[in-house]
């Protein structure tokens, strides 16, 4: 199976690990990530204003590119996923945005939300299947107590993202089980890490992450996993630096025994 892959800006720079481990793991699991040519930055946050069109166009271009190839579009970074899925929903369901975006882009055939947008985790759950993943694990992470950190971008608004139960998600917990570790459920796993506020209001974001890390530790987590480079950055700035935060793809690669295939590791 071949997917159109949208890596996004951070995965090309600060979060190269997230990307590299995902690629080698995909190969081990039998699907292929074909990077969209000339993809443009999604903007990092979804433009909420109903009159914002230009800021949504980069997402539409990527979506249309996948449509022309007849592929589903995979994202890995939570922010890209959030933005592209919501823009896709606009293109499908909001007449005004669809019309104006298409008028602007002048594509061969108007784009109307045809592409299916999947997060890498959704591919693991819905296409590969966690049972199958479990079978392919050669290096189970037995005994590790891992807290999944979802944040906001993957889950909300639940009606549009349709990713998991926004108040009690389990996809990352199921993933943790599949790679042989023990998931630790804690209430703050879908609370915000501070997001973009951490640029100007460092103290504020730190407080929020302190709450998250404290709750995760209290419930017994020895490590946190995330799918978002910004979440990772913010969580690493919390006062309590004992709790390591890693990308879920790193553990995936480790469990599949392909971690060493990533250069320099």
């Amino acid at each position: 199976m071949k997917y159109s892959y949208y890596p996004g800006c951070t995965l090309k720079n600060k979060a190269q690990d997230l990307d590299a481990y995902a690629r080698v793991s995909a190969k081990a699991l039998g699907f292929e990530l074909e990077e969209i040519e000339n993809w443009q930055c999604c903007g990092g946050v979804y433009p909420l204003g109903s009159d914002e069109i230009a800021t949504k166009l980069s997402s539409v271009r990527a979506l249309n590119d996948a449509k022309e190839k007849g592929q589903d579009l995979i994202t890995l970074c939570s922010a890209c996923h959030h933005v592209i899925k919501r823009v896709n929903d606009d293109m499908k369901n909001v007449d005004d945005i669809r019309n104006r975006a298409n008028n602007y882009l002048q594509l061969d055939e108007p784009y109307a939300g045809e592409t299916k947008v999947l997060h890498y985790l959704e591919v693991l759950r819905d296409v590969v299947g966690f049972d199958k993943l479990k079978e392919k694990v050669v290096n189970p992470l037995t005994g590790r107590k891992i807290g999944a950190y979802y944040g906001c971008l993957l889950l909300r608004p639940g009606k549009i993202l349709q990713f998991d139960n926004p108040e009690n998600p389990k996809i990352l917990e199921d993933f943790i089980k599949a790679i042989g570790a023990e998931p630790v459920i804690y209430g703050y796993r879908n609370e915000c890490c501070g997001g973009y506020v951490s640029l100007k209001e460092k103290e504020m974001a730190k407080n929020m992450c302190d709450n998250i890390v404290a709750n995760a530790k209290d419930m017994g987590a020895e490590m946190l996993i995330t799918a978002c480079p910004l979440c990772m950055y913010n969580l690493n700035k919390s006062t309590d630096s004992e709790l390591p935060v890693v990308y879920f793809t790193e553990l995936l690669a480790e469990a599949l025994g392909v971690k060493e295939e990533v250069a320099g590791k």
Binding site: G8, T10, K14, C41, G43, G44, G195, L199, L230, Y233
Partner: peptide, 12 residues
């Protein structure tokens, strides 16, 4: 360590 994502998001 600032990820690019933080800058683009804040700018937006």
């Amino acid at each position: 360590d600032v990820p690019q994502q933080l800058l683009v998001s804040a700018f937006r």
